[in-house]
Structure formats: structure tokens, C-alpha cells
Design a binder for these strands. Structure first.
Lengths: 154, 154
DNA sequence: TAATTTGTTCAATCGCGATTAAACAAATCA
DNA sequence: TGATTTGTTTAATCGCGATTGAACAAATTA
């Protein structure tokens, strides 16, 4: 029988965070930590609460948390007088997913551009196709820039 | 001394294709095959030309090519009377990168939505932040749909 | 028919990042 | 001071997809 306590729902969701972040190049544990900090009703968790809830080693947690803090995704809160560290989700840039998209576009554009450069025949079928894609990407980038502003001020 | 023959430039570029496609979830070999078919001045290559140019086993090539063909990224050309298969890049959907972006948006939106559902306090700092992100994503999706049409007809 | 070419299948291996375990350091407590 | 808590470091291991190798199949040629 499939249990559905709130805790179990949270755990499943945390694993989904792990999968999603895994798919975009993070360590699964990094994704699960972000998931835990997102899902948890308590928004500041101690190192110990994180390792025990996620069942991960202190070593993993230490390394991954340092990285997340360095990237600005997670903030450390050192409570007055205590030696224990608390971690919370950093509420950052809402356009992160858009930034990621633009980076992808730039990568593709760069590859195609270099590819055409190396082509003996710039009128070949593939070369023409690549020109079209570059063109499309450029139009999107222009539009995205204005969209970004529009959404920001709306 | 760093050589820079055209062949070497092509090979480096092919490896970049491998890295890029690797970063978006493909096998590196799949990316290198796409790279070779993109970069090569000859736009139709035989199975044998692919394995020998990329220095990969026939097994890898067979499996990866089958997948690429199934996904519609590569087309098989069977030359009249010959038993040999030729492969060429399929010129498909120019909006592929955009589709990928929308899928990412949907994943994030889904995660955040479920996260809010599970929150005891929907007015918590994180919950409010998540609402904002969902809102931003929704605005983008609307705009992207019209942009897509605009670019398509332009 | 036998020999050759062309590709497929799949068990085994390889590579490499993710993860752990255990020793270690630093701060706090008693 | 010695004992405890809190984390850090890093060498080893683990897991798992990517890749290979070799046997196998199917079509072709001689």
C-alpha cells in the first residue's frame, strides 16, 4: 500500500528536485538539498538536520553546501553565540532559467558559426540550414531582451 | 607546436559538439556523430566512414545511430543496389532549442507548484518567492508563443 | 557453395563523477 | 585541562552509463 503522509510527499518531491537539478548538471545531492530547503516548512535548517533528513554523509553535505553557498544559491546563517551553522534558500534572480536559455542559444550559435567557417562550400545544404538557425536564434535574442524588460517592469 | 590543419580544426569542433550534446543529456558519441555530419564537407557518410573517422567501435556506432535515426536527427540513405547505409543530418525543426526551453520552464513550474501545495504556510517567505517565479514563467510562456509565430511568419 | 562485406547484439569492461568513511581540526563546554 | 560537538578534508569506494570486443546474422559476391 502506498502511504501518502505529508513527510513522504515531501521526500518524493525532494527526489524530484534531485532529478531535475541532476539533469541540468548538478550533483543529485545538491538538488536534493535545494529541494529540502524549498520544501521544508522550516526555512532555516542546520547542517545536522540536513544530513539526517536526507540520509547523506557529512562529507557530501559539507562539500555540496560549500559549493551552493559559493554560487549564491544558499545562504549561511550563523546564529548569535552558537557554533552551529544554519542554511536557507537564497531568493535570487528570477531570470535564472532565462539566463540558462540564453547560454544554450549562445553555445549553439557558436558551434554553428564555426561549422560554417570550416565549410568548403558555404552554399551547401547544411550550411544554408545552419545560417537559418543562426538567424532564428538572433531574432529570439533580440526579442528576449525586450521581453525581459517588459516582464521586469510589469 | 599546435597544428591547425583543416582536419584538426574539424576534429576539435567535432569534440565541441560532443561536449555540448553531452551537457544536454546525449552520449558524447551521439554528439560527435552529429558534429561529424554537420562539419563534414561530404554530407552523406557511410557507417564505415563514421566509425573510422571518429575512431569508435562498430557497436557504439550501431546503437547510437539507431537512436539518432529513431529521434529523427539523422536520416538513413540506402543507395540503390548497395548494401551499405549512408547517414546524413536531418534538417528538422528550427525551434528545437525553444522547445527544450519550454520543457525546462514546465519542469520548474511543476516543482514549484507542488512545493507550494505541500507548504503548511502558503504565506511563508519561500512560498511567496515561488509564486513570483511561477508568475514570471507564465508571462514568458505567453510571450514566447506569440514570438514563435512572429519569427515563423517573418 | 564458400568467402566477404556490412552491420547487430550483448556480455564484459572502462571511466569517472558522486558518495562515503574515517581521520582530523576547531570551537565550545564542564 | 579533557571531553564533546560541529564541521572539514581526502583517500578509497561505489554506481552507473558509455564504450568496447567478439560472436553472430544477413546480405552479397565469386
Amino acid at each position: 500500500m502506498l502511504e501518502n503522509t505529508n513527510l513522504q510527499k515531501q521526500n518524493r518531491l525532494i527526489d524530484e528536485y534531485g532529478s531535475y537539478f541532476g539533469s541540468i548538471g548538478f550533483q543529485p545531492i545538491a538538488g536534493r538539498i535545494i529541494g529540502l530547503l524549498s520544501v521544508s516548512d522550516c526555512e532555516e535548517l542546520s547542517f545536522d538536520e540536513i544530513t539526517s533528513r536526507l540520509q547523506i554523509s557529512k562529507g557530501s553535505a559539507s562539500v555540496v553546501l560549500r559549493r551552493l553557498v559559493a554560487e549564491g544559491r544558499v545562504a549561511v546563517v550563523t546564529v548569535e553565540g552558537g557554533r552551529r551553522h544554519y542554511y536557507r534558500l537564497n531568493q535570487q534572480n528570477l531570470f535564472e532559467v532565462l539566463d540558462e536559455f540564453e547560454r544554450m542559444c549562445d553555445s549553439v550559435r557558436g558551434l554553428l558559426n564555426t561549422t560554417i567557417d570550416l565549410k568548403a562550400d558555404k552554399q551547401s545544404s547544411n550550411a544554408k540550414y545552419f545560417y537559418q538557425i543562426i538567424n532564428t536564434i538572433d531574432k529570439y535574442k533580440t526579442k528576449l531582451a525586450s521581453m525581459r524588460q517588459a516582464v521586469q517592469t510589469a
